[in-house]
């Protein structure tokens, strides 16, 4: 069970949060199909750390971005 650093509430237990997936940056809404395809679908899984979104659902309801190591689960600032 991760201890996730919420920017408002500090470190809280994983069960308070909802995962928001890879921290993808949306293209503009009117950008092309292939722009959206690349951003929404294609993943670079070759790195050990990723940027991801979390949502503090049972807390302040903040959406935030963190960097996490997928092997150690450590958060990096």
């Amino acid at each position: 069970m991760l201890l996730i650093p919420c920017p408002n509430c500090g470190e809280r237990d994983e069960i308070e949060f909802d995962y928001g997936g890879r921290a993808i940056q949306y293209p503009a809404l009117n950008n092309s199909m292939s722009d959206w395809h690349m951003v929404l679908h294609q993943r670079d899984n070759s790195t050990e750390t990723i940027e991801e979104f979390w949502y503090h659902q049972s807390g302040c309801e903040c959406w935030f971005k963190v960097t996490r190591n997928l092997n150690t689960h450590e958060f990096e600032s």
Partner: peptide, 16 residues
């Protein structure tokens, strides 16, 4: 597979 495919510049549409 993702990491292997990335060696030939293919990004696979999947999460681990």
């Amino acid at each position: 597979s993702s990491k292997l495919a990335s060696m030939v510049d293919i990004k696979l549409p999947m999460d681990l």
